[in-house]
Design a protein around this nucleic acid. Structure first.
Length: 452
RNA sequence: GCGGUUGUGGUGAAGUGGUUAACACAUCGGCUUGUGGCGCCGACAUUCGUGGGUUCGAUUCCCAUCAGUCGCCCCA
């Protein structure tokens, strides 16, 4: 028997409603912030990620899915979204567009070759946003507000936004030098991982979980203290606008991020949920003013974020998020071979009229048909057998009230539509069982038959 | 890449070095030709993730491997 590859998962119909609902919210909020969807290939030239994300990052040095294709080219399944979007921005010369600040969002699969654990898969989904063409701190603040607004729209409230600045290239270099100098004598007292980081990526020593409480690290210089004048001004601007928008955040001076392309603002959103386990960062992002130029484009600033959608899903589950329900308006029960032609005709008429409808294909007994109708969460069942055919009638039963009526069979569709419009029994026919709220807010899309 | 832990039917699970692998739920069929309940009757694992080893004999012990799960590193 075949089984799915390690670290992948099948998203089955019982759960896809949640994802559709989540994605709809993402798209709605994105529209409010005027970010437009971009879809770039899942596959890119390997070199793009080496140059974009950074040769020495863990992500590129040990987590990418690389392969050589039949044309002997080296390809990589994208481990993140920013590099591909930046490539597309440059390749399509969007910097020359009439709209000078280009704002994109994307939703799609990313791939990293890691050991799976809670909230971490080898194929996982991200929702990300990127804005190119302005170095204004207003844009940094907008991006953070955008991320927070998505969470708010999803009713995920128990989160903490952490921000920091690592400054522009000049500030970064100055800081890194100072840090290396500071740690030089005592690096031997830190943990093994830190000693490796010292050589590879000294910035990361700052948020080491093992050593973070040592005097050495507590007193270590912080990036924020090494910002040059313009970097300092930029960060102050970001803070100013966050405050003016009423966005809650904490400045975490130890926050540094693992990707090389970041400059200035870096931020993370953490959810305080035990259901997330160790992976509680649901969103990360920051500014990357040197990325576009390092990929061969014009000198163009940018800023963005990305959400891990599986982690968002975990967060949603802990607040009892339901998503779009699976339901049927009509389940048609045909009794007897002779009635099947009429049945198919009625079924088709209902479907074309906008009613979600189905029928028993297995000639089950009544008992079995009713069970199916229940499993499929059907609002109405209609029974059509010999007796009905003889009189041109059909029995229709409202599952929400258990009331059954016998009507002219040509009235089946009209009857159901009329009943669905009638607010009396249980609101909409979407089958949603939460009576307090609504059915997710989008039943108007199912053919105009909902009335919640 | 490293470490812990788990792996028995559709599901939840019991179990033992010895030949019929409990039990419950679900599902299917019947009692009951067309109204879902209840009840009763019956069906449903040539096999205990996979491969190898120890043994007269392995689902049980050992090794490997695969997968799940949790953690480290890192990240979403």
């Amino acid at each position: 028997m075949f089984q799915k590859m390690k670290g992948t998962y099948d998203l089955l119909p019982k759960d896809t409603g949640k994802w559709q609902s989540l994605e709809r919210t993402i798209r709605n909020v994105s529209k409010l912030f005027n970010y437009s969807e971009i879809r770039t290939p899942i596959l890119e030239n390997t070199e793009l990620f080496h140059r974009g994300v950074g040769e020495d990052t863990d992500m590129v040095s040990k987590e990418t899915y690389d392969f050589i294709d039949r044309g002997k080219r080296s390809n990589t399944l994208r481990p993140e979204g920013t590099a591909g979007v930046a490539r597309s921005y440059i390749e399509n010369k969007l910097y020359a567009d009439k709209v000078p600040v280009q704002k994109f969002y994307y939703v799609g699969s990313m791939f990293r070759y890691e050991r799976p654990q809670k909230g971490r898969y080898r194929q996982f989904a991200q929702f990300g946003a990127e804005a190119f063409g302005s170095n204004s701190p207003m844009l940094d603040a907008e991006i953070i507000s955008y991320a927070v607004s998505v969470l708010k729209a999803l009713k995920i409230n128990d989160v903490e936004v952490q921000v920091n600045s690592i400054g522009d290239k000049e500030s970064k270099v100055a800081y890194q030098k100072a840090l290396i100098e500071y740690l030089k004598k005592d690096i031997g007292t830190l943990c093994g991982d830190c000693q490796k980081r010292y050589v590879k990526n000294p910035l990361r020593i700052l948020d080491c979980k093992v050593d973070k409480d040592t005097e050495l690290l507590k007193n270590a210089p912080k990036p924020i203290d090494y910002l040059n004048e313009s970097s300092k001004l930029h960060f102050e601007g970001v803070i100013k606008y966050l405050n003016s928008m009423g966005i809650k955040y904490v400045v975490n001076k130890n926050l540094v991020r693992g990707l090389d392309y970041y400059t200035h603002t870096v931020f993370e959103v953490n959810a305080n949920l035990e259901t997330l386990g160790a992976q509680n960062t649901i969103c990360g992002g920051g500014r990357y003013n040197d990325l576009v130029s390092s990929l061969g484009g014009p000198n163009t600033p940018g800023v963005g974020f990305s959400f891990g959608l599986e982690r968002l899903m975990f967060a949603l589950e802990s607040i009892d998020f339901k998503g779009d329900p699976n339901f049927l308006h009509l389940y048609l029960m045909i009794l007897g071979e002779e009635q099947k032609e009429d049945g198919m005709a009625m079924l088709n008429r209902c479907r074309l009229g906008g009613l979600s409808s189905d029928i028993d294909f297995l000639d089950k007994a009544m008992k079995g048909k009713f069970k199916q109708a229940d499993f499929l969460n059907s609002r109405f069942v209609a029974i059509y057998g010999e007796l009905e055919k003889a009189e041109g009638l059909i029995n229709i039963k409202d599952q929400s009230t258990k009331k059954e009526v016998r009507i002219n069979k040509d009235q089946l569709y009209n009857h159901i539509v009329t009943e669905l419009m009638n607010p009396e029994p249980s609101g909409c026919g979407c089958g949603s069982d939460d009576s307090d709220d609504d059915c997710g807010g989008d039943c108007e899309s199912d053919g105009g038959t909902c009335n919640c």
